[in-house]
Nucleic acid binder design. Structure first.
Lengths: 362, 362
DNA sequence: GTGAGGCATGAATCTAGTA
DNA sequence: ATACTAGATTCATGCCTCA
């Protein structure tokens, strides 16, 4: 498997640069927008009119208004470049995240989760007047409510001791060797995010070869992690110094091997096999008796791949639901057949068919 | 010490009822407004059991605009009844919290922290399409940016193994005996909050005898915890059934004993002692040499209670910051004096003065 | 009385593909 | 767009029953 990847950092204003990109061209956006309300650069409204600069004289309301206009502008541009089934992550703190969240809802994004990044080693509150600000908030949102977004549920669960991944993630902040330093040993970027955070974001909600966009690229963590994990990345950054550091950083990253990156098909993605195929192939005989795992409820296999309970005939799922008086049922795991005196789920027979199909295909 | 307390549940619409209350009469508001969940269709667990969803009328809004208008109305009414130095907590989920947060910022509230309630035992995500929604978000905000809000820093820290209390709190959801049930054994209220959550909120940000208002009182957890911890409470609740259950619940609560509730004075509340007083009282002599704990950096005590480093003169804090090239410094713990050959923080001298003051006062 | 096992349940924006 | 169907999907906790 060989997916051509590219990793690019564009220097420029993200609203203008996104406007130059083709619409519906990006699978996932990760954005770490500025949350300093005393904005220094020029702000543009969605109609590209200039927002009055916010300077030392800033008044709170004017400042929020300016920040909202800026947020609406970049979110609109971001939504345009997203594929219909695309999704977005935004990270922020209490200073800005509520405004960002409300506006993205207004624009039609559909929030899937808010995820809390709990920091192992946050900066203490030195003045003792508040709680230690020990987390940041990420919003994960699909482009729209009906988007078929990517979520690697099984991978997340497997990586979490076989428990569902929760909405609170404990990860250390970016320090030590991972932190980019300039020639004088000073940190290159004030808010460099840890690669582990981006790794979980990308591994949970993208596939190999996906195109990731980071409109506030900064030190390039998103693109660096994308490259390592076999995803393409486009970073946009206004500051040439940050962009240069990011390019150098990304150049030094190697994409992991195919072996490590190859995705095992999930249960949902496995080829569909009808129960009738098992009967056709003689894996289970017409007239065979199926039961639930306790052996109490039963049904009889019919030649056409349906099953019968009493005088009612239907699919393994329908009849499974019926005999339990339930609204729905997965017949594959509910029904068992007799295999040398042991009750075994019929799903085992489906697995046999699938492995045979895979062997034939190879 | 005997503070007269009252605990009242008013039946009515919270906006109207708050409008009838005197302005600037409440110390703290805790609000658990409807979340606007926007549920569609039924959800079943994998075992086919039905999830008892929050589908009550009070949680249904026609649109985001309608929800925003509702939010603005109750936040405005709430702000009016708050004392100038009052504060507010609001709890919500990703469905509503971003809108609430943005609006309260617009109205002039000043966010102090967002606090994450991490649930030990959240409901799983049954369809495997998202992360387990394992937390809710609380916003803690002062009435205005210049409010002198209450924060019991020392108590929080002491109750957290002498570590600063963080912005993420791990607490179980409300189940078992604490959960109010009606005569048929059904839960009285669909979203009853755990008392432990309210206990931490009230113990962190109120004082004994404070007046607490809960505009969405529901099952009365806020008032119940307020009564237990020696605070007054006003609950407003539209639903008569909820209000009746809350009144009965509150009647069964006993306020803890004076002994348990008496607040140990925090360092911040301890009488202020200027460094000059130590000089005046002869506890440290003008001309004495102060150093940092390693003995590297130094300053000289002046007769007027300032200190000098080189030819710069200023407070112990200012000069402490200067010699470290830092923006701020607590001079009391930074500077040490020579006590029989050992370097001892000057804070020890302040403690001596305070105990003398306490003895004089007694 | 005690421990093992079954059962209920919690603020939930919870599917995907084909006809 | 709507309808139908195949089929994938749960963790911690408290209470109860039964051995």
């Amino acid at each position: 498997m060989d997916i051509p990847l590219s990793h690019e950092i564009i220097v420029g204003d993200c609203v203008a640069e996104m406007a130059r990109m083709p619409a519906a061209s990006v699978d996932l956006i990760f954005a770490d927008p500025p949350y300093n309300l005393q904005l220094s650069g020029a702000l543009h409204r969605p109609d590209d009119s200039l927002v009055d600069a916010v300077d030392d004289d800033w008044d709170r309301f004017a400042s929020f208004e300016a920040y909202d206009a800026f947020t609406r502008a970049w979110l609109l541009a971001a939504r345009r470049v997203l594929k219909p089934n695309g999704a977005m992550w935004v990270i922020g703190s209490y200073h800005n995240i509520f405004r960002v969240g409300a506006i993205l809802q207004d624009l039609g994004f559909w929030i899937l989760n808010d995820v809390v990044w709990r920091k192992n080693n946050p900066m203490p509150n030195f003045r003792g007047r508040r709680f230690t600000n020990a987390h940041e908030t990420m919003i994960w949102a699909a482009r729209s409510a009906d988007a078929k977004y990517t979520f690697n549920y099984e991978a997340m669960k497997a990586g979490n001791d076989d428990l569902q991944m929760r909405s609170d993630w404990l990860l250390p902040i970016c320090t030590g060797g991972e932190r980019l330093k300039d020639a004088d040993g000073r940190k290159v970027h004030p808010t460099q995010k840890p690669e582990a955070l981006l790794a979980r974001v990308l591994m949970s909600s993208t596939r190999r070869g996906d195109v990731i966009l980071d409109p506030f690229s900064g030190s390039g963590t998103t693109a660096a992690v994308a490259k390592r994990f076999g995803r393409s990345a486009i970073g946009i950054e206004r500051d040439r110094t940050y962009a240069a550091a990011a390019r150098e950083r990304i150049a030094g990253i190697e994409t992991l091997s195919d072996e490590v990156l190859s995705e095992s098909p999930t249960k949902r993605e496995a080829p569909r096999v009808a129960f009738g195929v098992l009967v056709e192939q003689g894996l289970i005989a017409p007239g065979a008796r199926l039961t639930d795992h306790k052996g109490n409820l039963e049904a009889v296999v019919r030649a056409d791949g349906t099953v019968a309970a009493g005088n009612v005939v239907g699919s393994i799922h329908k009849i499974g639901a019926l005999v339990q008086n339930a609204t729905a049922c997965n017949g594959w795991t509910f029904w068992h057949y007799d295999k040398a005196g042991r009750r075994v789920p019929i799903d085992e027979l489906r697995t046999q068919v699938r492995s045979q199909m895979a062997a034939d295909g190879a």
